[in-house]
Design a protein around this nucleic acid. Structure first.
Length: 196
DNA sequence: TGTCCGATTGGT
DNA sequence: CCAATCGGACAG
């Protein structure tokens, strides 16, 4: 059983944690079964100074509260009335940074993922932020969960190889910050949400 | 309480 | 390109 990533791993700027999460193994052990996969796409959200961040300008609400807390906790929130997004809190308490998990390459529990998604094409099971929440059985109940202790966690995984960088997706409203190269991908992976 | 809109997805 | 679908943020 591989050791999970600890608190110190996440207690760094999101811009360091985001690329470092590539190649890591994301695991979720649920009553339905265990699923796991390799993280192939992430984005950094850099707190109060980042116009694309939920905490931009110091915003602190019921929704983004866990972002303001200690690193290594899951920030799960609903979007578009029908989907969820999953982040891991980075940095330190009072510094609301997060790493958005955008795509995972399925490795274990593929049948369960396929059942949850209603698809069999492995490439399409978790190649998007909300798709992976469905495939991994990540629910709103996991908002605030400690990924250094609970059923949802990361392990060292494998070497990510070359990392590609691009602007973040779906944040055009953020003006100049939408242009920043804060999206990270495993170069050449066929399991990303879209090419760099 | 009312309005506006989204860190998406899947189909046209 | 566009609709689905509704919780959350914020104005009034």
């Amino acid at each position: 059983m591989e050791e999970r990533l600890d608190r110190r791993f996440f207690a760094r700027p999101a811009l360091e944690v985001a690329p470092d999460l590539l190649g890591r193994r994301l695991v979720h052990e649920s009553p339905e079964g265990t699923v796991a996969g390799i993280v192939v796409e992430t984005e950094a959200y850099c707190g109060v100074r980042d116009a694309a961040s939920h905490a931009f300008g110091g915003r602190r609400t019921a929704r983004n509260e866990v972002l303001w807390g200690p690193p290594g906790h899951a920030y799960v929130y609903p979007i578009y009335g029908m989907y969820l997004c999953f982040n891991v809190v980075a940095s330190e308490p009072g510094s609301p940074e997060g790493v958005f998990i955008r795509a995972v390459e399925p490795r274990e529990g593929i049948e369960l993922m396929a059942r949850r998604r209603g698809l069999s094409d492995v490439r399409k099971l978790a190649n998007g932020p909300s798709k992976l929440c469905i495939a991994f059985g990540i629910t709103r109940e996991l908002n605030g969960a400690d990924v250094t202790k609970g059923p949802l966690y990361f392990t060292a995984g494998e070497d990510a190889g070359e990392v590609a960088v691009s602007r973040r997706i779906g944040v055009d409203y953020a003006g100049a910050d939408a242009e920043r190269p804060w999206r990270f991908l495993v170069r050449g992976s066929r399991f990303v949400s879209r090419p760099p």
